[in-house]
Design a protein around this nucleic acid. Structure first.
Lengths: 146, 146
DNA sequence: CATTCAATTGAAACTTAATCTCAATTTCAG
DNA sequence: CTGAAATTGAGATTAAGTTTCAATTGAATG
């Protein structure tokens, strides 16, 4: 299904669904969760398929443009992505101690975005709310920030 | 005033308020708005003071730790900061067309953060809400995303 | 004032993610 | 098939940010 969508997206731009792009797409959708480009690159190598680092990055950009994948956040070490097709929009809480990412969804937040945009004559298309702090297991342990 | 706070912060750690650190501090608080480290570095050079790139980055980290400065967002080209002392917390809307940043504050959002954290047993210390879209002047102009 | 020693600095080397280059290869419409 | 256009990968490049380390500074002490 996601392949069909991606193929259509590529078609509209006169681009082709090559082996490499298909490999990246397959790998991205082979699991649920967050990933970094480098991590993805190694997963692909380890899965029999092949695609250079350059192709991984290039395809990732296309996937984001197509709406199948989203950039979750930027860390000091690079970007974190997740596939969004088939998943409802959600936001994230990030633990400063262990780096863990917790997903949450809030209907109130969605309507609040609309309200805030209206007040500022802004035409909002998306938002990212990132809450930082300590997750349940890291609380009260005196751990350093990462 | 901010110098006093910074000095106290440094004192607690056995660090000194050197010429270079003072220059960075002064420059950061000499204007209101967002800035990038590189930009700050050149402002300092142009203002008679001096501080190496390394010192600028090092001091910026200290300022963030002291709470006087906050990292606003990460762009593809680096981090964006702003001084927060004397300013109430706020969030940002970023125009995809012109890159402009609009600040806003929402009481509802603040209480919503508390509510969401509670629901997830997360101990939240801060949040960043970034709304992306088109600002008033860029709407309906068919401009490309940056 | 001299001494001392940890803190600090700056220039340059380094790191790392990400992008770009370009010759070689693949794809596909005709 | 054939040729134009798209694509690829290896490696070079870029740029933000960090680290290294020898030289300098400066506060405290004798």
């Amino acid at each position: 299904m996601e392949q069909k969508i991606f193929q259509e997206f590529l078609g509209e731009r006169g681009l082709k669904l090559t082996k490499e792009r298909a490999a990246v797409l397959r790998e991205v959708f082979s699991f649920h969760g967050h990933f970094e480009p480098e991590h993805l690159y190694f997963r692909i190598r380890g899965s029999g398929s092949k695609a250079s680092r350059a192709s991984v990055y290039r395809t990732l950009s296309l996937l984001v443009e197509s709406g199948l994948v989203e950039k979750v956040t930027r860390t000091d070490r690079g970007n974190v992505y997740e596939h969004t097709y088939g998943h409802r929009h959600h936001d994230h809480m990030i633990c400063d101690a262990c780096g863990g990412i917790i997903e949450f969804y809030s209907e109130k937040l969605e309507s609040l975005q609309a309200e805030i945009c209206e007040q500022n004559s802004f035409s909002g298309s998306s938002h990212t709310l990132e809450i930082r702090g300590r997750c349940e297991t890291c609380q009260g342990k005196g751990l350093e920030d990462r």
